[in-house]
Computed example of a mutant assay.
Amino acid sequence: MVSQKEIRASNALINDATAPRVAVFVGGTSGIGQLTIKALVATGASARIYLVGRKSPEERTLAFIQELQSINPKAEIIWTEGEVALLAETRRVCGIIKSKESRVDLLFLTTGYAPFGERRETAEGVEIAQSLEYYTRILFILHLLPLLNQAEAPRIVSVLGGGLERATIKLDDLDLKKPGNFSGMNAQVQYLTMTTPTLEKLANDNPHVTFVHSWPGWVSTGNVRRGIDTNSLWGWFVWLILDPLIQLVAISDEDSGQRHLFQCTSAAFGGRGVPWQGKPGINSLEKQANGLFLVNYKCDCTPNTKAMPLLREKALAKIWDHTQEILRPYL
């Protein structure tokens, strides 16, 4: 476990030389994305931050940007609106960033929510939570990898469920369209398990880029309530029991933001970034080198040796082929 004291000591070393100069936060208007942006801005370092999010009340977005700039006038916040549950919108947003930048140092991905309601699809025929938690994120990575490879110490952090992968998922129905296959827990496990082999492949193909698949633990972001019928039995359960329980055991907003900033910047992961004298993180292939790091809410790494060897052998090729099929029209 990396203590909060160690994390804050590391983050205190972030300055103009070690901060990501160009950062893209997808899903940064709420939850962990918002908390991590605030932690980064509060370091006082110069940074240009693309804040990507869906349309929300203009006053709230402007107030957040003004808050960030009052905290750190050296931070340049570029609001980039996009309904990124749609893959065509994701491609458009990436086009905007690519037209303005020659490099990206950090890509931070947090879109999604616990899919405990009924199965709902986007206009493109993709289940909404799966689009946000998997397809959108992989599409952002594929579009921005050329810019990330131009940075000195590029990093991609995807916040979902690194280390929680299961050895068996529904390979014959990756999108959970068959009757009876979709449920909240099945979907969440399916999506996070699809993510890790794909990120590992991309990490192996791009050894200059550090990849982190983060499991944030319990953080009270309100996502557990999204997408459910508040008048349903499950909606009442979430409101009366689950949400109060999460708030009771949740990591504080401040600590969560600091922990994810540490994951974005520390040389503990891949050896590049803010200097780190502690134990180095071990990537998913159990090498103390760059690659994919499965990082939990304690900032510990796991290779998940129970699931990952089987996923590499039996699932990766099918997941990757299917992913390419879905994303090809948007590349």
Rank of each mutant, 00 (worst) to 15 (best):
F211I: 05
H213A: 13
H213Q: 10
S214K: 12
W215V: 05
P216D: 01
G217M: 02
G217W: 02
G217I: 04
W218C: 10
W218K: 11
S220F: 12
S220R: 12
T221Y: 07
N223H: 10
N223W: 09
N223C: 13
V224A: 09
R226V: 14
R226Q: 15
D229I: 06
T230V: 14
G235D: 10
W239R: 12
L240E: 07
I241V: 13
L242R: 04
D243R: 05
Q247W: 06
A250N: 00
I251L: 01
I251E: 00
E254T: 03
D255N: 03
G257I: 03
Q258T: 00
Q258I: 00
R259T: 02
H260E: 06
L261S: 00
L261Q: 02
F262D: 00
F262I: 01
F262K: 03
Q263T: 08
S266C: 11
A267N: 07
F269H: 11
F269L: 15
G270H: 10
G271S: 09
G273I: 03
V274Y: 10
V274M: 04
V274F: 08
P275Y: 10
Q277I: 06
G278V: 06
S284D: 07
K287Y: 03
A289C: 09
A289T: 14
A289D: 14
A289G: 11
N290E: 01
N290H: 02
G291N: 07
V295Y: 06
N296Y: 04
N296V: 04
N304W: 11
K306E: 15
K306Q: 15
L310N: 14
L311P: 10
